[in-house]
Simulated assay, not measured.
Amino acid sequence: MTSQDHIVLAADGLSKRFGGNTVVDRLSISFANGRLHSILGPNGAGKTTLFNLLTKDISPDGGTIRLDGSDVTRLSPDRIARRGVARSYQISSVYLDMSVRDNVWVSAYRARGGNPLVFWRKADGYAEARALADACLERLDLTRFANAATKELSYGDQRLLEIAVTLAAEPRIILLDEPTAGLSRKETERVKHVIATLKGVFSIIMIEHNMSVVMDISDKITVMNRGIVLAQGGPDDIRGNKSVQEAYFGS
């Protein structure tokens, strides 16, 4: 077994109900080390609920979640994060009135064991957190914006900043929730390129509606529909799957 065959995160028989509505239905899925695994599906398929279950933002009604083979189903979200799982959100979660560097510094400071309630420190303090924040900005080509207010960035650069904030948490596994949503074609290409450079270094799980992005950079794709796995495979497998075309494209 190679390092990329190692399963870093897996769910077995995962279920979640809201009232009488079953949103995730006995779903089993696994994610391999260093791979980019995309989750596709129409609205209401259960994709974001799956993310929330994997990060323990919500608790499952059934099934198990394993991280590196260990059962983490009952762990809290902060303990999951400390084990190297981090995510970005579909709705921007950066602080618009803070500088670009300060946004990343807060995440880096927490990752290095700082008090999560401390927001008034200056990013020129705590040298290790500052160095980590600056490295994340450089990696995503945001250094030139370091001292700018986040609200001054283009929407595409704000999405890259969200990824930088996620990387500053020093994760092994990154969950990206629609990273190109609302972006122009040029911004989408830039974000896609950045995500592609993270493959292999991190294990990436991505919800994304832009089919060209998914097909261009995914190693594996899982298509969900009504809370279950409809299809799974590489881009070529999914592209030619008739059940996927019917569920996702309505044809």
Rank of each mutant, 00 (worst) to 15 (best):
A181R: 11
G182E: 14
G182P: 14
G182V: 12
L183P: 12
L183V: 11
S184P: 10
S184K: 02
S184T: 15
S184Q: 05
R185D: 15
R185Y: 14
R185Q: 15
K186A: 15
E187Q: 10
E187S: 10
E187M: 10
T188F: 07
E189S: 12
R190I: 15
R190P: 09
R190G: 11
R190D: 13
V191L: 04
V191Q: 06
K192C: 13
K192M: 14
H193A: 15
V194I: 14
V194P: 01
I195Y: 00
A196N: 13
A196H: 06
A196R: 10
T197D: 12
T197P: 11
T197W: 02
T197R: 12
L198A: 03
L198K: 02
K199F: 03
K199T: 07
K199W: 05
K199C: 10
G200E: 05
V201L: 10
V201W: 00
S203Q: 01
S203Y: 01
I205G: 04
I205Q: 01
M206Q: 03
M206H: 03
I207T: 05
I207W: 05
I207P: 06
E208D: 05
E208P: 12
H209W: 08
H209C: 07
H209V: 08
N210E: 13
N210Y: 02
M211R: 01
M211Q: 00
M211N: 06
M211F: 04
M211L: 13
S212N: 14
S212W: 04
V213K: 00
V213S: 03
V214Y: 00
V214L: 05
V214E: 00
V214F: 03
M215V: 09
M215W: 02
M215I: 03
M215G: 08
D216G: 07
D216P: 09
I217K: 07
I217V: 14
I217Y: 03
S218R: 01
D219Y: 02
D219A: 05
K220M: 10
K220D: 11
K220S: 04
